[in-house]
Nucleic acid binder design. Structure first.
Lengths: 162, 162
DNA sequence: TATTGTTATACTCTATAACTATA
DNA sequence: TATAGTTATAGAGTATAACAATA
């Protein structure tokens, strides 16, 4: 302990991060990691990850959708949604309907168990959002959603400006 | 083409995503994926990923810092920063100083090449941010950074409210 | 020819445990 | 005993290529 006692709390040289905290990409990454961690805690009892909640939500809203349509709606590669749906199907939450007009595709539906779980997830989700609202206010939360949507749309444009 | 001509653009049944677009976690993920993709394009000529820019920035700002200090400042596990610095050192951008007071640790510094590259990266970075500003305005960008920082701080608190 | 689901593969990021050498 | 760097490993997300069945 090279510092004499009685001094105020250690000043901590403080690592200089500039200009990282002023970069949208950096701030987004830090926020996403933090939110995903708390999200995982909030949904730990359900053993459901964010991507799985996304699939359950879209299938619940749009029964009969094809896998590739669900993937596109969520911005996931159609190759990557296969193990995701495998997991949900193995847990009896989602069904790949056998018959279909186009026999290449799978019409997806929630099972009764899937619908029941989705209901509980959405209630928990509402609680989780209100916890975030406690941090930035409902006005701040709405504004954040707007700004994120605008950034996403700008980057996803065919001739993306960024 | 089962649809007669002359009709307005195809209505597209439109997949219902609600309430996903109103969830901060979902909006964050979509925004981060979109921003990282355009970021990668903007920095493609430098072959530098976001995490690498973070390390170069922190080492440039704080020469002599230990690996574990850089990792903590960036929110990276100290085990995961090893290959990151390996890569930067192999390219001659960062040096692990041989000698030190504590011979367990590595004092990190940028090489001349690293400093030169970091300068170019930061100029490109400023351009990139101004492209994002074109999408949401400078006021929107500042507000977005504030909101993201508030969310991050709230989630990272020991007794995180979310 | 094109599309759907699928498999295989690769790379990045994140996380944990355990080792080593120093302290 | 504690810490810094390291190694190994595992899991999730993302991405591309290619194949079989079907259209």
């Amino acid at each position: 302990m090279p510092r004499p006692a009685l001094l105020p709390p250690p000043p901590e040289p403080a690592v200089r991060l500039d200009p990282l905290p002023d970069m949208v990409g950096y701030a987004l990454r830090r926020a996403q990691v933090a939110v995903f961690r708390t999200f995982s805690k909030a949904f730990a009892e359900f053993d459901v990850r964010p991507a799985q909640l996304g699939v359950l939500t879209v299938v619940g809203n749009n029964p009969g959708l094809k896998q590739s349509e669900v993937a596109e709606a969520l911005g996931i590669q159609r190759a990557n949604i296969v193990p995701l749906i495998d997991g949900l199907a193995a847990r009896g939450l989602v069904e790949r309907a056998k018959a279909a007009v186009d026999r290449r595709s799978h019409a997806l539906r929630l099972t009764d168990a899937g619908r029941e779980l989705l209901g509980r997830l959405q209630r928990r989700e509402a609680e989780y959002e209100s916890q975030l609202t406690a941090a930035i206010g409902e006005t701040g939360r709405r504004r954040l959603l707007e700004l994120l949507a605008a950034i996403t749309a700008a980057c996803d444009e065919p001739s993306e400006p960024a």
